[in-house]
Structures are given as C-alpha cells and as structure tokens.
C-alpha cells in the first residue's frame, strides 16, 4: 500500500489501515526507543501512543501530510520518548508523590464516568468515541456504523450523549458529587 492510500484510509477511520501501519513500522519505531535506553515494553507503548496521536489527528482532519508517514511517526515517537525520559528523570530526583498528586475526587469522578461509558450499548459507545475522539464527520460515522444517513448519525449521537450525561449525573448524586 502506498503512503497516500494508507493515509486516506486512516482519515476515513479505517482501523485495518492503522494495523497495517503498526506492523509495517514496528521494528523501525521500537528500535528508536530501545536504542535510547528504553525497554521493549516501553518501546511498544510509545509507538502505540504515537500511532494513536497520528490516528486522532488524521481522522479529525487536522493533519496535512507533508512528509512520509514514517518520518512523521518517527518524530512523534521521538517527542513522546523524550517526554517520558524527562518524566522519569524528574521522578528519580524528587519525591514520588509530590507533584503527581491528583485529588481523589478527580480520580473517583473519572472512574464513575468510565463505568458509565461501559454501561452504554456498543453502538452508542462507538458513536460518541468517533465523534469526540476520532473527530470523524457525521458522514464517516454513518458509513462506519451502517446508519442510513448523517441525520441518523446526528440523532444517535445526541441521544447517546444525553443518556451518558444522565447516567453520570445519577451516579454523581449517589456519591454526593453534586451539591
């Protein structure tokens, strides 16, 4: 597959094209991390993160490819790994739980929301994730999920979001998050 074909497919939210990319550059990208004092697991993690970043930018239409995909991915990997190395260095110099402190409320809240997302139906989940993360157009969402048209996609998205909001609110009030 040529670069622009892969890219085009990814922009439309074709996950198999992402898998194809993942396989294709796996060695190349993980080598970057491994040869810079990273473990194989870290390398894999960074590479996957980089691909997800790439995916998100591409699907949401925020990316104009000016170089080869591999060059672009490589630079994301470099940046992510540099950040991770920085983070590790800071951790080793400072007390572990100084800065990294996240208030328990925030943690608790995000756990509740994640649980609520899990309670949604598969289609609902997909519609919302495609809309809020992938940033796919309503047309692409309709295509991917087999909706008749963009209106169906819009309605579905609206209803699912409402359902999720309500679920979360009801859970919040149970745990006294809402005053």
């Amino acid at each position: 597959m040529k670069d622009n074909e892969v890219f085009e497919r990814i922009c439309r939210g074709d996950e198999t094209a992402l898998e194809y990319l993942y396989k294709k550059y796996y060695r190349m990208m993980t080598k970057l991390v491994i040869s810079n004092s990273g473990s194989e697991q870290e390398a894999k993690d960074i590479y996957q993160d980089a691909l997800v970043v790439f995916w998100q930018k591409a699907t949401s239409g925020n990316l104009v490819l000016t170089s080869k995909i591999s060059t672009y991915l490589y630079s994301i990997c470099q940046n992510l790994w540099r950040k991770e190395l920085d983070r590790k260095r800071r951790l080793s110099h400072e007390e572990k739980d100084g800065e990294e402190y996240i208030d328990i409320d925030t943690k608790e809240r995000s756990k509740i929301i994640t649980d609520c997302i899990g309670q949604l139906g598969e289609t609902c989940k997909k519609v919302l994730m495609f809309y809020y993360f992938d940033g796919l157009s309503m047309q692409d969402i309709a295509d991917k999920l087999g909706f008749a048209n963009t209106n169906t996609a819009k309605t579905k998205k609206y209803k699912c979001k409402k359902k999720l909001d309500e679920l979360v609110k009801s859970q919040y009030s149970e745990s006294d998050f809402l005053d």
């Binding site: 992402l18 898998e19 993942y22 691909l51 997800v52 997302i117 989940k125 994730m129 809020y132 993360f133």
Partner: peptide, 18 residues
C-alpha cells in the same frame, strides 16, 4: 470530564486493538 473519559476509553481501545 465526560469527553475526556470518552477519549481515554477510545485511546485504550485503539491500543488494545494494536
């Protein structure tokens, strides 16, 4: 919060797929 959680879920899903 909700949108962030949705995004994180999707990220995790993509990573699990990979």
């Amino acid at each position: 919060d909700i949108v962030n959680a949705l995004r994180e879920t999707r990220k995790a899903e993509l990573k699990a797929m990979l």
